[in-house]
Computed example of a mutant assay.
Amino acid sequence: MTRQSDFDFSGRSVIPYAQDYCHGAYESWHTHSCAQLIHTLSGVIRVETRHGFWVVPPSRGVWIPADIPHALHITGEVKARVLFIEPLARADLPVACQVVSVSDLLRALIVSSLNLPSEYASGSRDERIYELILDEIRLMDTLPFHIPEPASERLRQLCQAVREAPQEPWSVASAAVKISASGRTLNRHFYQQTGMQFAEWVRRVRLLHALARLAQGEQITRVALDCGYTSPGAFSVMFRRVMGVSPSDYFSQ
Score class of each variant (00 low, 15 high):
99 V>G: 01
30 H>V: 03
214 L>K: 03
78 V>F: 02
30 H>M: 07
194 T>S: 02
40 T>I: 12
119 E>S: 11
174 S>E: 14
233 G>C: 08
110 I>E: 02
210 A>Y: 10
4 Q>V: 14
6 D>S: 15
141 D>R: 15
29 W>P: 00
97 C>A: 09
139 L>E: 15
187 N>K: 09
75 T>Y: 14
122 S>N: 07
70 H>P: 00
89 A>D: 04
102 V>Y: 08
71 A>K: 14
56 V>D: 05
139 L>N: 13
101 S>N: 15
52 G>L: 05
159 C>V: 15
236 S>D: 05
76 G>R: 09
162 V>R: 00
139 L>A: 10
237 V>C: 08
196 M>G: 00
174 S>F: 08
28 S>T: 14
1 M>K: 08
91 A>H: 13
152 S>C: 06
177 V>H: 07
66 A>F: 07
68 I>S: 03
110 I>W: 06
188 R>T: 04
244 G>N: 03
185 T>Y: 11
101 S>H: 12
150 P>N: 10
158 L>W: 05
49 T>P: 00
165 A>P: 00
234 A>H: 15
153 E>G: 03
153 E>W: 06
202 V>A: 02
206 R>S: 03
43 G>H: 03
210 A>N: 05
195 G>H: 09
234 A>L: 10
199 A>M: 06
209 H>L: 01
113 S>R: 10
4 Q>C: 08
251 F>H: 07
236 S>M: 05
123 G>E: 08
115 N>D: 12
144 P>S: 14
89 A>H: 06
47 V>H: 11
167 Q>Y: 11
6 D>C: 13
58 P>I: 04
123 G>R: 10
46 R>G: 02
226 D>H: 11
44 V>R: 01
163 R>K: 06
158 L>V: 10
173 A>L: 15
43 G>M: 02
81 R>P: 00
114 L>G: 01
124 S>Q: 05
149 E>H: 13
34 C>V: 11
161 A>N: 03
237 V>Y: 15
241 R>Q: 14
52 G>P: 01
53 F>G: 02
213 R>H: 07
153 E>S: 15
191 Y>W: 07
193 Q>D: 04
